[in-house]
Amino acid sequence: MTLLQLNAVGHVYLGRPVLEQVTLQVNQGEMVALVGPSGCGKSTLAQIAAGLIIPRHGQVERGYARCAFVFQEPRLLPWATVEANVALGLSGLPVARSERRARVAAACDRVSLEEGDWQKFPSQLSGGMRQRTALARALVADPDFLYFDEPFTALDAALRRRMQHLVVATASDSGKGGLFITHDIHEALRICHRIAVLDRCGHGILECVAVPETPGHRSEEMIFETARRLISDHPLFAVVEEHDERRLA
């Protein structure tokens, strides 16, 4: 079953095309990584797919009932406690107060947020705890599709690895669909079932590669070897390693 279908999607910012002819399909139970150099339009594409931006061209078909979005920054309400921030993910759902509390507690447990931290404000949390709160907010309503827009870029290596395991355990391995934006090929190999490479100028998906084995069951050796092979042997993946942002026209 197709949960997300992008057909020839294109978008323009201030008269300058940033995306053209992008076609992508995400099926149920599949986490697809979208990689590409900085500035190629990955985040714009994710926001178009999620409905935050209306595309200039093409169609977006969404086959899921409920989705959630984990942004690059945690985007927590600074005036709300961890518990209230996580409960925001249940907005619009007819959930009784007692069930709401239970679901918030379960979501916090899933991302290893201790009960003593649930009444804290975001300013009292570390960067990792804030991002875990954002993840809990995304998971609390049990969405059938998840968008991740480079959610762990600002975290240190150890914390990023821990968060990646958390995503694998809570999303990639649970039959949900998802689109994971990253420019880290190792992260994509660790979390996703398929890797789509976006052209450096946003002119379509250049290649879509299926990753062997399932997320969570891949060894570190396999991940590093596959990453090395993809980058050195596959010319299309070379763009992922480019650090220069696309120049403004």
Binding site: L52, F69, L77, G89, S91, G92, L93, A141
Partner: peptide
Amino acid sequence: RGLEDMARMAGLSWLARLFQI
């Protein structure tokens, strides 16, 4: 405005976004 996008994705109606965000 990033908080409003977040609230939209979390399922808040426009009225809820106005008052809560």
